[in-house]
Design a binder for these strands. Structure first.
Lengths: 200, 200, 200, 200
DNA sequence: CATGAATGAGCTTTCATTCAT
DNA sequence: TATGAATGAAAGCTCATTCAT
């Protein structure tokens, strides 16, 4: 239900000069639809949910990946920012754990995110790029610190680890997290594995 | 067209033999196509590869999941069977590790398997069921033994763990495993996590 | 109204094992639609007119050019065949004239033919090819004969001449030939030009 | 915003000057775009090239034909004007030839002009009208003179002849005139035909 | 007057699924 | 029992055109 600033209760049909409102409505709709049906959901369904025509969607987000980026970017940024706080507040090992769980919570609500990341579809390149340039370096920093402080002994490639966590969040189905914390439990296992002396 | 009836020992029931041949061809074709294009590959491509009409495919496998099940059942059975050998040949902890890696190798070649398992699409229920009734108990047994022998300290729900491993194998894209062993590395981390004293 | 061989007056809805009937209906429909709206007419309109689904059209004619070819090929062949008769029955010059007028009549009813031929759209390549390999050599033979007999003095490239005639038939509009013989008159002028001693 | 009224001599009516500038830019842009992509080119591409909004385009040229007319009118006028000079400088027959070639050169650079002229689309009526009222009478005069002087023997309807020449210039495709002079050659043939004693 | 955001019809193409033969 | 032709519902994407600002 976009355009709430209409002021009167009449037909909320006509356009707002401020495309911003529509853009916001689209991003919001996309977020919801992605959560419900994954990132491959029909473009039309997003436009409908936002209460705009498909043309409008295409105007603002010519590529599907543009919309995906718009949906995820802000949350990713918040995730990245959170790392700094955690680093300041906790010892390296705990900061690492907490951040990974933070990241897990973010990614757990994004149905299809992992799929998109690994789809090979060039449309998702920008998203993968964002992962590599923003999230991966963040995790790397946390890993470095925890390694230096001797709290973890296994080294992993940051990008790989992020991908793994994203995969573990693949809950599938229209009722994500129905299995209550499955993903979290497995991620904790992964984190525990980092402390192990030798692997395989 | 002799012997429309089944069980006589003479001419060994032509009709059914033909059907069997078609079924085998379909399963074989599906296996190849699934590996190439994932379990969502067009039905037609499977029928074509098998050299039969789509109608024939539908006759034998009315649901897509029927075909998927048929494709994976045999390999799953082999996987289950392997557990017995490993249990006999290795101490519980090592048997567990080896079996999980065995399972990993199986699942790694099944593009879209994990996705299907968690898709929520009722069409894949039977497949999930097979997982629960065959693979999960097997892993559970191995976990129990390793717990009893004190080699692992973390308990996990077998089905959850299997799902997690399947998810970790999600390489996506047309170039599965291009990242060379990513999945295996993460699975080993998960296994290492099982040995950890406390998690999270 | 395809499927007239149904035999009874009932609902003529169900499919005929003989796709031939549908193919014929499609070609017939395409011919009509092309004549009315040109070769760029929506695929759907052709399918509708033929009384079949779009899928059926795509099955038989995956490329638009396939349909175009099907529509024009037979008539082109007939045109080519006519040349032999004319060569036998008339002196070279007259045979040439008569054949060109024959060709004119064929092409005059094909709205958009010339446009398609020169569109540069690779979809129409096969059609252009057919022109080059079937019609052009035919005209060339006629031109050669008329030149040898001294009846024409100007030489032209056969393909160019055919294209020119096709262009001249561009009557446009939903009422082709409303201008009653305009194209024919101009083609005759072109033929007369071939007799001229010097040009430009 | 001073001087909303027109005709005062002071500040030379800002509003209208701006509008004039936009109109000119639009006509110029349309000319370029038509030449590149034909007269069916997307409206938006023209507006963009002119650096104005589509709304502005629609304000000044509500119908596509309005824009087409505006684009061609000036050149048509120049073409018409050229006739006078040629009539003065050359004998009737030669004047005719030269003018037709002049017209050919004009029309050859207008991709889609012929198509538009004969499209039957009422949107192009005004353009056709301009042809009839300006160009056709010009050619008619030249034809009359050449007939009178005995240089040509065939009579043709001027409008028909103009249309034929336009059609012959239909090169179509993204590489107009790649065939180097095809159109000119055919037009000369047409002119030669006018000299012929009898046709068909 | 100018702008360009919004709309939505319309086109192509793909595929799951049915069913006449 | 097998076949594959037929169907038609999607889905993506592109403009022409309107109209709030």
């Amino acid at each position: 239900m976009p355009h709430t600033t209409d002021g009167d209760g009449g037909e909320p049909r006509r356009q707002r000069a401020d495309a911003r409102l529509n853009i916001d409505a689209l991003v919001e709709a996309a977020k919801a639809v992605f959560a419900e049906s994954g990132v491959d959901a029909p473009v039309r369904s997003i436009a409908e949910r936002a209460g705009v025509g498909v043309g409008t969607l295409y105007r603002h987000f010519p590529l599907r990946s543009d919309l995906i980026s718009a949906v995820f970017r802000r949350e990713m940024d918040a995730c990245v920012a959170a790392a700094t706080d955690l680093e300041a507040a906790y010892p390296p090992g705990e900061a690492l754990d907490r951040w990974v769980m933070r990241y897990t919570q973010f990614v757990a609500t994004k149905r299809g995110l992992a799929g998109a990341l690994h789809s090979g579809d060039p449309a998702y390149e920008p998203l993968a790029e964002y992962f590599s340039t923003r999230l991966a370096p963040t995790l790397e920093r946390l890993l470095d610190a925890a390694t230096e402080s001797g709290e973890i002994s296994q080294r992993v490639v940051a990008g790989e680890f992020l991908g793994a966590v994203a995969n573990l969040c693949h809950d599938g189905g229209p009722t994500p997290s129905r299995s209550g914390g499955r993903a979290e439990r497995m991620v904790r296992l992964l984190l525990a594995g980092l402390r192990s002396e030798d692997v395989g």
